[in-house]
């Protein structure tokens, strides 16, 4: 999920050979839904997301969140996998 255009995201997806879906949210509508819009946070003055990760189960319920306190931080893969393992059975 990023504020970049679908075209820019497609180029990155191809470069990384990623199997993830890259959702484009140039208007930041979902950022507002979560309260994570960093206004004028990008070097060029555009809005951008605060570093955030959210794990959602099969019923659409939030099961785990990560919020970086600095824009250097990302969720650690081991924390993400642990959260996935902890999802309730059948969700």
């Amino acid at each position: 999920m990023s504020v970049h255009s679908p075209e820019a995201s497609r180029r990155v997806k191809e470069r990384l050979k990623s199997r993830f879906t890259f959702l484009a949210d140039p208007e930041g509508t979902l950022l507002d839904g979560l309260g994570i819009r960093h206004r004028a946070g990008r070097n060029d003055g555009a809005d951008i997301a605060y570093p955030t990760a959210v794990l959602v189960d099969g019923r659409g319920v939030v099961r785990w969140v990560f919020q970086g306190q600095t824009y250097r931080e990302r969720a650690r893969p081991e924390d993400i996998f642990a959260a996935i393992e902890a999802l309730p059975e059948g969700s």
Binding site: S2, H4, L30, R42, V56, G58
Partner: peptide
């Protein structure tokens, strides 16, 4: 929203879906 191929991706709040991890990318690409 749309994905990297321009395909529409729509989910209502509370709607059943496959479990998903949303990573909000902070940076430029």
């Amino acid at each position: 929203l749309v994905d990297q191929d321009g395909a529409r991706r729509e989910v209502a709040s509370g709607e059943r879906r496959a479990p998903a991890l949303y990573i909000f990318y902070r940076g430029g690409w």
